[in-house]
């Protein structure tokens, strides 16, 4: 599986994503600067966590307009896999690759801790390596992870099996405890928790490995 990680000014999990991908795939991903309009030929694009453009205007709003995102959209439209983590999820909703929006946490506090998630959906390239209903622990670190969409959109996401991860104990007020969702074609996943931070037991857990393994098995 060939992967690329997009780097925006003030991305700060781009290197975590690189380390995780290198560990799992055995080769380093391409690191693509936001001003580049061309993506290398890859199977997976990761939009990492961080504070792209200082979260100016709205989280992810400026990044969604950057030159590289046109190529990411084209990659997604062709059915290519895209994984947006944390700020990457915000960029994906601002780019309309995923529905809804991420708002200020209901408690107004930045939440930084490991959280338990329930894997709600294993029919995806990202989660086929998990068991349905399995509990996993991923860290979260965000101030704006409160997922919002209107009721019709939420019903549709649930009806189509596009809610992939749900919080066991909601840390941010997210609608229907949603932590991660898929696009209609199921090739784009946005999630607030950080699977790339739990691939090495030395840094707190290995529950994220199955996500990357699923992708490698599907995309290689």
């Amino acid at each position: 599986m060939k992967a690329a990680v997009i780097v925006f000014p003030a991305s700060n999990c781009d290197r975590d994503a690189k380390v995780a991908l290198t560990e799992m795939t055995g080769k380093a991903p391409a690191m693509v600067w936001h001003q580049d309009s061309d993506l290398p030929d890859v199977d997976l694009v990761v939009i990492p966590g961080g504070f792209s453009y200082g979260d100016y205007l709205r989280c992810g709003a400026m990044a969604s307009q950057s030159p590289v995102m046109r190529s990411v959209k084209a990659h997604a439209e062709k059915g290519g896999a895209v994984l947006g983590i944390c700020n990457g999820f915000q960029v994906l909703t601002e780019s309309h690759l995923l529905p809804g929006a991420l708002m200020r946490n209901a408690g107004l506090k930045f939440v930084c801790k490991p959280v338990t998630l329930k894997v709600e959906e294993t029919q995806s390239a990202f989660t086929r390596g998990y068991n349905n209903g399995q509990s996993v622990v991923f860290p979260v670190a965000h101030g704006e992870g409160n997922y919002y969409a209107d009721d019709a959109t939420l019903d549709r996401l649930e009806g189509e099996g596009r809610v992939v991860f749900r919080y066991a104990a909601n840390p941010n007020g997210s609608a229907r405890d949603i932590a991660g969702i898929l696009s209609e074609k199921r090739n784009v996943l946005g999630m607030m928790p950080h699977p790339e931070r739990v691939v090495d037991g030395a840094t707190g857990g290995t529950d994220g490995r199955a996500l990357f393994k699923s992708l490698i098995e599907t995309l290689s």
Binding site: L57, A61, A101
Partner: peptide
Amino acid sequence: EKLLANTVI
């Protein structure tokens, strides 16, 4: 529509 507002919210 393009940038200043996120019309979802």
